[in-house]
Design a protein around this nucleic acid. Structure first.
Lengths: 214, 214
DNA sequence: GCGTGGCACGTACGGTGTACGTGCGTCAAT
DNA sequence: ATTGACGCACGTACACCGTACGTGCCACGC
């Protein structure tokens, strides 16, 4: 049974698998090698070091975003679709996404989504400066939302292991304790779409005002 | 010269100092001990483990947020001030903030800002469910913005060491390459305020509509 | 047949977090 | 005053980490 030859993509895939199964802390060169039934140092024939391997993870996750763009649709719908595509990848690879988001990105893998978004925004009528602004606004919102969904955030994503928002002092935190049931649960998709629509509507207004003025 | 006795807060302070000076990767129990002129294992008399120490860092940073709330001001201004207070702490402790944002939060230190924000929103007229929604929306935006400012993000915060958005293929990425100068630089404060105002305006509209309807 | 280069692998070194034991200083009860 | 207990600083030791370096196998071009 000659196993498939070792390669960078196989190593990256094993890393993603491991991250999703046991979390980013479990990632070690030795562990990945073991999962691949391979000596540790063999990995270094295909990957210069661990940091580069994690860059590969980021690149791979990013490149798996599936954009289905309909050039005929209204720009608001196209923007919405692009944002949702991001969310879906994060939903699929939650723990890897966490890693992607919290690492400096060195490759050009992140440029495709950026290019696509800028194109859409400029076709909608934004000038260059505003397109960049709006892009940054959306990225901030999307990434912030992903972090909530993935399980970080000061707003109590329902972490299965941890206790809910129990044992808060109602004297000190009346609002938090009154709204604890709302804070403790979260329909991430509904919440994401709510904010997304609000944002899109807001920048549509911004666009109209600029258009009628200048 | 009897040095001040070792304590959890002194250890946490040393950790924050180290993180800001040399980055989160430089943090190790040995290194912190050395900075404090202390044996490694002495730390464990005040801190159960490294993870807890990092929780302490998060807690400390969060608790240093300076809210100056004027109960007489319009709610939009109060919300703006609270968001800015967050940004300022991140600006002051950029690398620690990165760490805070990318860790699950286990303590109640994050509850004060939450309580405060919820109070403001409910006084503005939002019902419980909407207040929670709006809070989450703001948190997503603020955290996403902080990540950009702190130096992550797919949008090219100007990392001093790295080359700018050079060497992108204008054929593949026409928008990116045309707007490269805009993408490559960023007035974080201006950008943050722009998005913040847009957001506040949007939820103000949302509030009015709900108010006049119900 | 014979180099030669790619690749799997073992060994080894300096780093990490932390379990455990030891010794010293201080304070409480006798 | 003596003794006991406890708190806390510290050293040692272990398992694990990333990776530099050397070795040997095997498949290929000449």
């Amino acid at each position: 049974m000659p196993t498939e030859p070792l390669s960078r993509v196989r190593i990256v895939a094993a890393a993603i698998d491991l991250i999703e199964r046991e979390g980013a802390d479990a990632v070690s060169m030795r562990r990945i090698a073991a999962d691949l039934n391979v000596g540790v140092m063999s990995l270094y024939n295909h990957v210069p070091n661990k940091a580069s391997l994690l860059d590969g993870v980021a690149e791979s996750v990013l490149s798996q975003i599936e954009f289905t763009d309909d050039p005929g649709a209204h720009w608001t719908d196209r923007v919405r679709m692009q944002a949702r595509a991001f969310r879906q990848i994060a939903h699929h690879y939650p723990r890897s996404t966490m890693l992607v988001v919290s690492r400096q990105l060195h490759s050009n893998a992140g440029l495709f989504p950026v290019e696509r978004a800028l194109t859409t925004l400029r076709q909608a009528g934004f000038d260059g400066a505003d397109a960049v602004r709006m892009l940054r606004l959306f990225i901030a919102y999307v990434i912030g939302s992903l972090l909530r969904e993935v399980g970080v955030t000061p707003t109590f994503a329902p972490v299965p292991g941890a206790p809910p928002v129990s044992d808060v002092d109602p004297e000190l935190f009346p609002q938090v304790s009154e709204l604890s049931s709302l804070l403790g649960s979260c329909d991430h998709e509904e919440e994401f779409d709510f904010g997304l629509d609000l944002l899109i509507q807001a920048i549509a207004v911004h666009l109209e005002r600029k258009g009628t003025r200048g």
